[in-house]
Design a protein around this nucleic acid. Structure first.
Lengths: 218, 218
DNA sequence: TTTTGTGAACGTGTTCACAGCG
DNA sequence: CGCTGTGAACACGTTCACAAAA
């Protein structure tokens, strides 16, 4: 399969969610146009995205909802379960642990780590918080994905420990660019960037035109 | 000012963070190459991004750290404070409320809403949880940004209530595409999409080649 | 010599538009 | 006729490469 763009993969997730809903509504078929409308994109985009993986539709009819849903499920690797370790038992870590949606999509949090002695040994959502120093032993747990919900300063170090423990994918919530070896997939969720991007957009809306700020350096 | 791409704005946030660090380290000047290295991108990208807003550097010398930091701060609209309302006092909502980073960047959460009677009236991080039915009154609070941390089903409805209350920017944590009127900025943080994108990447890594799944429709 | 600022070249993702099939 | 699948056209973001300035 050729190189698939990150945007295509993200849209696939969205299609999957829409198909879930449409399936629950009892509809049997759906056209690329309808699917596109629910996502606010063009129908050509939907067809192009799907075409990278095969021909799932019937000309004149559209796509079979249940079938396409299963195809995307398999493409996204959701037809199996993934073993996830969470590092950081603070506010965000606890919130992620309590969020039922992960398990529902096939992501099982099987271990949680923290460095704070006050947190180690505590029970959170049925899991005992382990000492982050024990991260190397995560290899024996068969962890495939690591979630980093630590403070900024610890993030890079934790990423390296996770990689050393054999993790092949990392979801990072710390507001910093992490460096990981090639072959390890990294996704970052940075709420600060999102807020600042909003603030930029709002500022533009109020004061639309402005040009060449120039000004002194040094 | 011409249309600025979303990616440029996001990188600006990253530059800002790097400049903070470099500033704290006491360095006076920084070159586009150094700035780029810290973010894992090319120096041309840094210079191009900055050039959309002005000429902040000195040839042969680089950029004055403190000055560039202030310029970006102003570009991103971080030279003022923003009034934020949080809707949803569940796990994610509470975690966001407790996160000190928002206030540090100029985003003040001044109200929190929920629909659950068990939560209304509770104190969370010094704020009393208000009834979501009172959202229209948020207009009198001068709220500019709304953060949606509700369950999936309520998200679109809440978005509309926020817009009606005069909010011009929305940060959405619900895993769904929201529809908002033109002129309202929307950013979505969808952890499910990130995880599924990871799962796709890992699946690819194991079983690289595969082609044309074809198969029956209907 | 170092490093910026930027037009031009390049590459990649999106949209168009239509042939092909049901 | 309706709708998919896809090459071609297009738009847009990134990288190159170099003139200009310190």
């Amino acid at each position: 399969m050729g190189r698939i763009s990150e945007s295509t993969v993200r849209r696939l997730s969205h299609y999957y969610r829409v198909l879930d809903e449409v399936h629950a509504e009892g509809r049997r078929m759906i056209s690329s146009r309808r699917l596109a409308e629910r996502e606010g994109i063009t129908s050509a985009q939907v067809r192009k995205d799907l075409s990278y993986f095969g021909s799932f539709g019937r000309r004149g009819l559209g796509y079979n909802v249940a079938h396409l849903r299963e195809e995307i499920r398999s493409i996204l690797g959701l037809d199996r379960r993934w073993r996830v370790a969470l590092v950081g038992a603070g506010h965000i870590g606890s919130a992620l642990l309590a969020y039922r949606g992960f398990a529902a999509q096939g992501f099982d949090i099987v271990a949680i780590y923290d460095r704070d002695p006050a947190r180690i040994g505590q029970k959170l959502s049925g899991l005992t918080v382990l000492d982050a120093a024990a991260l190397p032993a995560a290899a024996t747990l068969g962890i495939e994905i690591g979630v980093i919900a630590t403070p900024l300063k610890a993030a890079q170090e934790v990423a390296e420990a996770l990689v050393a423990a054999g993790v092949r994918g990392i979801l990072n919530f710390a507001p910093r660019k992490l460096f990981v070896p090639e072959g390890v997939a990294l996704r970052t969720v940075d709420m600060t960037v999102e807020l600042e991007s909003l603030s930029f957009a709002l500022r533009q809306a109020r004061a639309p035109r402005r040009r060449r700020g120039s000004g002194p350096a040094e």
